[in-house]
Design a protein around this nucleic acid. Structure first.
Length: 584
RNA sequence: UGGGAUAUGGUGUAAUUGGCAACACAACAGAUUCUGGUCCUGUUAUUUUGGGUUCGAGUCCCGAUAUCCCAACCA
């Protein structure tokens, strides 16, 4: 039933992009597109941020707009310059360019002036209750709140106290500035939200100028508006903040004498589903615990779901972006499978990784009909999928290292590797054959120490007999005299459970423990296996973050700490293995 | 009867906006292979539920159900 007109499937775009595109085409905002990526510099960026980055920067790039990087630095208690630099590095590594680097703290004066204006209009007041009292009066989602006794104090008193809040003489917690909205609103965010609190601590950018600092809800929308952001894209948990976001923008517009209709010339907040991944824990608070408790070696530990961690593991920026593209932007609270991510990584690495030989669990193989001092040199293809990647040289000699599990004395029928009387091809080299008897030597424990085989003449790649049909597969090897030792770090998932976030919080509630104690039961004790491998000498020419494939084993990446003298390789992801599956 | 959001194979996402439910991952089977990888072919499996409107409903209407978000002086 195939019709002739098989039109190319029209590109399907996310609902977010649909909105942006439609408004752009309608000429809204003067046909201008401006987004922003607003991280709080209190930790490293993780894969969830990458999803936000991809749409914030991606849309701006695709539709000729601009995306600014704005540090959401309204809480000096948790933030640090170290994080700002790391955030910039990670965004660049992903391949995106920002318009400007801005800071919420750039707007502290403007926000202050607006707050004063709002006090004068009777829209804000200073509350002297304790945080417990305020929480109590706020009510619950099912019960309306009640007004603060300070709600109707005179404007002059509000102004005086607000100034005192910022004087440096006010103890933190003594008073806050609240917006006067509606304590009975079904939307909790409307129950007189706190605009300013006293922290009395220096800010790493503004120094000691401020002692009272604005809250997120009072900051974000106005910053967007003042900057000219047209689309403020964020995650779903902010849906219920949107009415407040819009209200504060209204107030800022009015205070600034902006008489445009309220639905024009203003940022529009759009929310998408945040990223959830199986076997991954994504929350800066919890990631910080892993770092501080030494469970991992740092924010860029290859087991961390941070951008820098994935980078060090060997995931390419392209593979991360490709994965994000596959999962899409919707409003559904999805749990994505890690296998989809890994398949995106393998897809990309298959194109770019150079093929090399490394023997990770070595056993010696002796080619009995080869002379002690003979050496042959071959050209090994770097990437069968891309001839332009060229070749590199490898050496072959009498004594080789091969993988221990490429030999079995008593093998199942479908084991197509080495064993008594069996033949295999040595990658890039000869076909070899093990004798029927006495094909290996063992130590006192019965562990194989040496395997013997003879090469079959003229079967080398390119030689007359090279097409000889054998039952065996092709195995990889390195020459004992021509290889070097290297440290190989095989990483495995950090979490043994599919959904660590839920498991941890359930465990935490049940046992009344928090932090690392609630996490420990779910951590994989074998998340890192360090091995010494024999690798071909050519690898000493490889540089940190180079993409490699250890043939028949997996994709590996050169660790940043690796040197030619002591090479370190991180396992990015294993190759698919349809043999291992057969075993069980 | 607090408010808000969501629901399509095992998983995630599409469906020209009311017109043959498709793509990817996963799983399984086979072919090719000097990587038990890649490439290629095939198989299994989907509209939460009950009503309604309609020639026709994943899409519209009404009612259930389930999940998520909101009660930080965090963002």
């Amino acid at each position: 039933m195939k019709e002739t007109n098989e039109e190319p499937r029209t590109e399907s775009i996310s609902f977010v992009e649909e909105i942006v595109k439609t408004e752009l085409e309608a000429g809204k905002n003067g046909g201008r597109l401006q987004t922003r990526f607003p991280p709080e510099p209190n930790g490293y960026l993780h894969i969830g941020h990458a999803k936000a980055i991809a749409i914030d920067f991606g849309l701006a790039k695709k539709y000729g707009g601009v995306c600014n990087l704005r540090m959401d630095d309204t809480n000096p208690q948790k933030e640090d310059m170290e994080y700002v630099r790391a955030i910039e590095r990670d965004i660049e590594w992903l391949g995106f360019k920002w318009g400007k680097v801005l800071y919420a703290s750039d707007y502290f004066q403007q926000l202050w002036d607006l707050a004063v204006n709002l006090i004068k209009q009777g829209k804000a007041y200073v509350d002297e209750q304790t945080s417990e009292q305020i929480a109590e009066q706020k009510g619950t989602p099912t019960q309306p709140g009640v007004n603060s006794p300070y709600r109707d104090r005179p404007v002059e008193e509000n102004l005086r106290l607000f100034n005192e809040m910022n004087s440096g003489n006010m103890e933190p917690g003594r008073m806050v500035l609240r917006a006067k909205i509606d304590m009975a609103s079904p939307n909790m965010h409307f129950r007189d939200p706190i605009m300013y609190r006293v922290l009395n601590m220096p800010h790493w950018r503004t120094g000691t100028k401020w002692n009272a600092y604005p809250m997120y809800d009072y900051t974000h929308g106005q910053c967007d508006y003042w900057e000219g952001v047209t689309h403020s894209i964020c995650t779903l948990e902010f849906v219920s903040h949107r009415p407040l976001y819009d209200l504060f923008v209204d107030w800022a517009k009015q205070a600034g004498g902006d008489d445009h209709p309220l639905d024009d010339n203003r940022p529009r907040q759009i929310e998408f589903n945040k990223l959830n991944l199986t076997h991954i824990l994504l929350s800066k608070r919890n990631l910080l615990i892993l770092v501080k408790e030494g469970v991992v070696k740092g924010w860029d530990d290859p087991r961390m779901p941070t951008i820098s961690g994935f980078s060090r593991l060997g995931y390419s920026p392209e593979s991360i972006l490709s994965f994000i593209d596959k999962i899409g932007y919707t409003k559904f609270d999805a749990l994505n499978q890690m296998s989809l991510f890994e398949s995106a990584v393998r897809d990309d690495l298959n194109l770019r990784a150079l093929r090399v030989s490394a023997v990770v669990d070595p056993v010696k193989l002796i080619i009995t009909n080869m002379a002690e001092d003979a050496v042959e040199v071959y050209d090994a293809v770097n990437n069968p999928g891309n001839e332009a990647d060229g070749t590199h040289q490898i050496e072959f000699s009498r004594e080789l290292w091969i993988e221990r599990d490429d030999f079995m004395e008593d093998a199942p029928a479908k084991f197509f590797r080495l064993g008594p009387g069996k033949e295999v091809r040595l990658k890039n080299s000869y076909i070899i054959r093990c004798p029927e008897t006495d094909c290996c030597r063992k130590d006192a424990d019965g562990r194989i120490t040496e395997i013997y085989a003879e090469l079959i003449p003229d079967t080398k790649s390119g030689q007359p007999n090279s097409n000889m049909k054998i039952k065996g597969k092709t195995i990889h090897w390195v020459s004992c005299r021509h290889c070097v030792e290297a440290e190989v770090r095989n990483y495995d998932r950090l979490w043994m459970v599919e959904n660590p976030r839920d498991e941890i919080s359930a465990y935490s509630k049940e046992h009344g423990v928090e932090g690392i104690d609630a996490m420990r039961p779910f951590l994989n004790p074998e998340s890192l296996e360090v091995k010494t491998a024999y690798v071909e000498k050519w690898l000493t020419t490889r540089k940190p973050l180079d993409y490699l494939q250890f043939q028949r084993i997996g994709y590996y990446n050169v660790d940043p700490d690796s040197t030619p003298e002591h090479m370190v390789f991180n396992r990015t992801v294993g190759l698919k293995d349809s043999w291992k599956k057969n075993e069980n």
